[in-house]
């Protein structure tokens, strides 16, 4: 459900958690991000930072500058002034990421897991089975057809939790049990209803079926596309996976190595929730963009 009023939950002496509902629903994330953007614009004294998640917003404040009751009051006021979630408009960059689907590296990783840890249906085939698709080519067509919404980042710094914006491209998958001890850097995967890209080689539990040669993590902090951070994405960005051949993948990888790769980023668009919802109803799905995990 979506709560009528957000819930304000204290979290120690310097944090406040604001919950908008208790389900996986893009609308709740739009509310969290809308409130985060409003708070940043309001520049409230003593509010250090906010972090949106799927259905909630964490607020970090400095108690010597603002008391708990005042933080609650400010965020209650901001949240009321946002009006309906339909009215939310968010700055949203769009990233085009070259993506080699059904690549040899994630395949080798899955084969290794099957050989050493547990037998399982290979990840792309499992996604085909779980979602009633025709075959792995259908999976590639469907997965690459949608834009993906960066709902939040975490688990590893810069690791995005992505929701398919096109309801027709919403796939689900169980997570690995037990998890993998290793995932190739740049692997693209799906677990529950969330997609992700692995910024570095880490353990993981998502079904993996594609890889991008383009870094989304850079500890040197010197890539201009990262805008001073060590990771590429921020909440509210969108990602489009562009299927490329092995040759194109290798060429992009080479360009990255030689520091001449240029990211394709569209920065002139706003994400308008009302327009999005209208489009979702047009494409024939539930207008509240509900997804099931």
């Amino acid at each position: 459900m979506i709560y009528e009023q957000p819930k304000f939950l204290p979290a120690g002496d310097r944090y406040l958690l604001i919950e908008f509902g208790n389900e996986m629903n893009l609308e709740l994330n739009f509310m969290a991000q809308g409130l985060a953007a409003a708070a940043a614009a309001a520049n409230i004294k003593g509010v250090i930072e906010t972090a949106p998640c799927f259905a909630s917003l964490l607020v970090h404040y400095e108690p010597t500058l603002i008391g708990y009751d005042d933080v609650v009051r400010e965020f209650f006021r901001l949240s009321a002034s946002l009006g309906s979630s339909e009215d939310i408009e968010l700055e949203s960059r769009l990233f085009y990421l070259p993506t080699h689907y059904l690549d040899p590296w994630t395949k080798a990783c899955v084969d290794d897991y099957c050989a050493k840890i547990a037998r399982k249906v290979p990840d792309p085939e499992l996604l085909v089975q779980e979602n009633g698709l025709e075959d792995v080519n259908h999976l590639v067509r469907l997965h690459s057809s949608s834009e993906y919404w960066v709902a939040s980042l975490g688990f590893w710094p810069g690791l995005p939790f992505l929701m398919a914006l096109d309801p027709r491209a919403r796939l689900t998958a169980p997570k690995y049990n037990p998890p993998r001890t290793h995932t190739p850097e740049g692997a693209i995967g799906l677990g529950g209803a969330a997609n992700s890209i692995y910024p570095v080689a880490t353990p993981g539990g998502y079904q993996i079926f594609a890889r991008t040669p383009v870094p989304i993590w850079d500890a040197t902090g010197k890539r201009s596309a990262f805008e001073g951070s060590l990771c590429l994405f921020r909440p509210g960005d969108r990602i489009k996976f562009v299927p490329v051949t092995r040759e194109d993948y290798d060429a992009a990888e080479e360009a990255v190595k030689e520091e001449r790769y240029e990211y394709t980023i569209v920065e002139y668009q706003k994400f308008v929730v009302r327009n999005y919802n209208n489009w979702v109803s047009k494409v024939g799905e539930a207008s509240n963009a509900r997804v099931s995990a």
């Binding site: 120690g12 944090y15 958690l17 998640c53 099931s292």
Partner: peptide
């Protein structure tokens, strides 16, 4: 709702305070 996860202590992913 089932999207919270199967364990009693599972919740839809949320921000963690330090």
């Amino acid at each position: 709702p089932k999207e919270h996860g199967s364990l009693p202590s599972n919740i839809i992913d949320q921000g963690y305070p330090m």
